[in-house]
């Protein structure tokens, strides 16, 4: 595992995320999750609230199958010996699914550490890369961005603007150039200049497009030839508004290019991003980062406890 799992301490960063998510929910026009809290507080069984729980989880895009599994697990736990608080039990179940109390952190000790950022169109890959670069640069890392989205018009310009704002070198070719060649140059540049991290901005692609998935594999093969083990990290960007298709995206990207983590973006809207629960539950892919705004600071490590607390408080 290249990500360092540290014991979660309720630090200021995560507090603010929790605070943020809570505010987000207050803003939301249907605060279903708060209803859950009220429903479960003091109740002994879930029979009388089962349908409401189902509704709440499904409306958060958790999906029918995973919702049913969660609810059966809740029933099991509540039927066990001893008095239990149903709300706390439900939170624990969700935290367990999402990877426990640990908050993942990026450990970029290999140099250059190569991160490939992938996903379907419009999830926020380029913005996420800018935020991630900003986060790493603030930790004192030297960051190179590879403009390997050579397909979408002006994607290169977009990355260059971000690179300038955050202080990262951007390696780019022209529109329509070979994406593998761009990534290759970027990693070579990083190695020659002693840079710490390379982040590759790949073109958005629907996971159903076979040829485009092949191109992605090629990019990864090419960087693997320059630096052993690269890409060390393949981050799949999932939009929080995504429905059940998110699970299919994650499955295909995982099978095809070995996703090491998920970034959930756009959590500042009213969407709950509940699709990450089946992604973690069914596929075992960890959620690593959350994005919640257009500012450079709006990216944080994913804390399962904070996420669940924010959803169910």
């Amino acid at each position: 595992m290249l990500w360092k799992h540290t014991i979660h301490i309720q630090g200021s960063e995560n507090m603010s995320l929790l605070g943020f998510l809570r505010t987000g929910l207050t803003k939301s026009r249907n605060a279903f999750f708060r209803k859950i809290g009220e429903l479960l507080k003091g109740s002994k069984g879930i029979d009388e609230v089962r349908e409401d729980l189902e509704e709440t989880l499904i409306l958060a895009d958790v999906g029918v199958v995973t919702t049913e599994k969660i609810l059966s697990e809740l029933e099991n736990r509540l039927n066990g010996a001893g008095e239990k608080d149903p709300l706390e039990e439900l939170k624990d179940i969700l935290v367990d699914i999402l990877g426990g109390e640990d908050v993942p952190d990026i450990d970029t000790c290999i140099r250059p550490y190569v991160i490939s950022v992938v996903g379907v169109n419009g999830t926020g890959k380029t913005t996420t890369i800018a935020k991630l670069a900003h986060m790493l640069i603030r930790k004192g890392k030297k960051v190179v961005l590879a403009a390997a989205d050579t397909f979408r018009a002006a994607a290169i310009e977009q990355l260059k603007i971000w690179g300038e704002r955050v202080g990262a070198t951007v390696i780019a070719h022209d529109l329509g150039a070979d994406a593998g060649a761009v990534a290759y140059d970027a990693v070579n540049h990083a190695r020659a200049r002693g840079k710490d991290v390379v982040i590759i901005d790949t073109a958005g692609r629907l996971h159903t497009k076979h040829n485009l998935m092949e191109e992605l594999k090629k990019i990864h093969r090419v960087v693997g030839k320059v630096v052993n083990g690269a890409p060390h990290e393949v981050l799949l960007v999932i939009d929080a508004t995504t429905g059940q298709n998110g699970l299919m995206q994650a499955r295909v990207f995982k099978d095809e290019v070995g996703v090491t983590g998920v970034v959930v973006t756009k959590l500042d809207g009213t969407a709950k991003g509940g699709i990450v629960i089946p992604i973690r539950y069914e596929l075992g892919v960890p959620i690593k980062l959350v994005g919640f705004g257009e500012g450079l600071e709006d990216l944080k490590p994913f804390s399962p406890r904070d996420y669940v607390e924010a959803l169910l408080s």
Partner: peptide, 15 residues
Amino acid sequence: VDAMVGQDAVNSARR
């Protein structure tokens, strides 16, 4: 609207 959007689509569309 993105075809892949989930349950929240109704909230944004309504607004």
